[in-house]
């Protein structure tokens, strides 16, 4: 924690800022990209959202109070950015978020940045049917392999509630894959 405080100071100090930010990018761009990509699905969209996320992180760093870990604070920004992006994109296309997500999943096969088989596509189709929060929890636990404690800090939900949500999500997904 002390180390993290020093790192934040380096990020805020104009003299050490560039170097510190480069370090931040190296450490977090991959996990944050994966997190965002799992929400928005499309690579170009994920690229846009990841940029916005780092710009926001840089902008609001001086307001970061250190109450949570830098890691979870950044994940929170990324999650908000990704969800806002999706709802704005749906609005722009005049469709609901669910319709947009279904359409994106249907296009996955043709996506040059997707290398998956039928079961992977089926899993994505099953996830889209879940409520938004369950989708997030499932993706963070199953794909990103985050700990319940970490997800709890990011989403502000208790570990118990997260476990229950994940359990429900898995049951629904298994039912969908079995019958489809």
């Amino acid at each position: 924690m002390q180390e993290e405080k020093e790192f934040i100071q380096e990020l805020l100090n104009p003299k050490t800022q560039n170097q510190a930010f480069e370090k931040l990018l190296k450490e977090y761009q991959k996990p944050l990209y994966n997190h965002i990509r799992n929400i928005v699905i499309d690579h170009d969209d994920a690229d846009d959202v990841l940029q916005n996320t780092f710009v926001k992180v840089f902008q609001y760093l001086n307001r970061f109070k250190g109450e949570s870990k830098l890691f979870s604070w950044m994940y929170r920004i990324a999650t908000n950015e990704a969800l806002t992006f999706l709802s704005q994109k749906a609005k722009k296309n005049g469709v609901s978020s669910e319709t947009l997500q279904n359409k994106t999943i249907d296009n996955l096969k043709a996506d040059v940045y997707f290398d998956g088989n039928e079961i992977q596509i089926k899993l994505q189709k099953a996830i889209v049917l879940l409520p938004e929060k369950q989708q997030l929890i499932f993706k963070m636990k199953y794909f990103e392999e985050l700990k319940y404690e970490e997800i709890s800090e990011i989403l502000g939900t208790s570990v118990g509630a997260l476990k229950a949500s994940y359990h429900h999500a898995v049951k629904k997904i298994e039912a969908f894959v079995t019958t489809n």
């Binding site: 104009p14 800022q17 560039n18 930010f21 480069e22 990018l25 190296k26 761009q29 991959k30 990209y33 994966n34 990509r37 799992n38 699905i41 690579h43 690229d47 990841l50 940029q51 780092f54 710009v55 840089f58 902008q59 996955l108 940045y113 997707f114 290398d115 998956g116 088989n117 079961i119 992977q120 899993l123 994505q124 794909f143």
Partner: peptide, 27 residues
């Protein structure tokens, strides 16, 4: 089961470089 999502070649290297240039200068 993995997501199957891939990225363009050197995406993360390029992203770092792009991001460093994009950051608002505070000087």
């Amino acid at each position: 089961i993995k997501t199957g999502f891939t990225t363009p070649e050197n995406y993360f290297d390029d992203f770092s470089a792009k991001m460093m240039q994009q950051l608002p200068k505070k000087e």
